[in-house]
């Protein structure tokens, strides 16, 4: 089981380089993605490669367990581990779906405006879900109310009526790679802006939009 997995990962430098990961590192990356997704106010980049590799690991392990005899202590320990990983995996996917449902017009719009070479924020399945959700919502609004309205009130702009993710909201984070000169914007006009350095291992409370790129690059971990 200690053999290394191949994982194609899209680095922030737009080129995709091949990274070798042990299963333990893979699970660790899934957990980090899970926490980031849980705490970030907007939808983060999809980690479909990690998700696929984890699913592969899980089904591989399930297969092995099918062959093992029941009631063995070993089997029950493996089962417990599988359950734990599956929990993280589904919680991760679920928190993404929740955000898609919450911000669906913006999510679909962003995906449409995305340049071909940029990595997608959605997996193909998530995109299909978002599109369908958008269509169904439009249909629902139309059938229930809009068509009974006077003609000049029958259209609705979902982009304007569904709130955007609040990027000004505060997040807690732990620093994985030291960062210098992070600009802190003042809350009121009397205050001045200033910069801080984020030391490795330190923890901070800060506005999400200030450090959003660092979450994507993996330099900080939301907690």
């Amino acid at each position: 089981m200690a053999d290394e997995l191949e994982l194609f990962e899209q680095g922030s430098d737009a080129g995709s380089d091949e990274v070798l990961l042990t299963p333990a590192e893979l699970i660790h990356q899934l957990e980090e993605a899970w926490l980031n997704e849980k705490f970030a106010p907007d939808l983060l980049e999809s980690k479909s490669e990690i998700v696929e590799c984890v699913i592969e690991q899980l089904s591989h392990m399930e297969e092995n367990l099918q062959r093992a005899k029941k009631g063995d202590l070993k089997v029950s320990i493996h089962r417990m581990e599988i359950d734990r990983i599956r929990y993280v995996l589904s919680s991760y996917l679920r928190s993404r779906l929740l955000k898609i449902e919450k911000f669906f017009p913006h999510v679909v719009e962003k995906e449409k405006l995305r340049a071909k070479e940029d990595p997608s924020a959605l997996s193909p399945e998530e995109f299909a879900f978002a599109k369908e959700y958008l269509e169904n919502t439009e249909m629902f609004l139309k059938n229930v109310t809009l068509k009974h309205m006077p003609p000049n009130l029958q259209s609705i702009d979902l982009l304007k009526s569904v709130p955007q993710p609040n990027l000004d909201s505060f997040v807690f984070l732990r620093v994985k790679e030291r960062q210098e000169n992070i600009l802190i914007e003042p809350e009121t006009d009397e205050q001045r802006e200033y910069t801080v350095d984020l030391e490795e291992g330190s923890q901070h409370l800060i506005r999400y939009k200030t450090i959003a790129p660092l979450v994507t690059s993996g330099a900080v971990q939301l907690i």
Binding site: F172, S202, Q203, L205, I206, R207
Partner: peptide, 20 residues
């Protein structure tokens, strides 16, 4: 204090995840 001084940044070293 954070709220009263209308801060937008705080350092939280040594706080544990459960406390946060």
């Amino acid at each position: 204090r954070f709220v009263r001084e209308q801060e937008t940044y705080a350092k939280l070293d040594n706080l544990t995840l459960m406390e946060i």
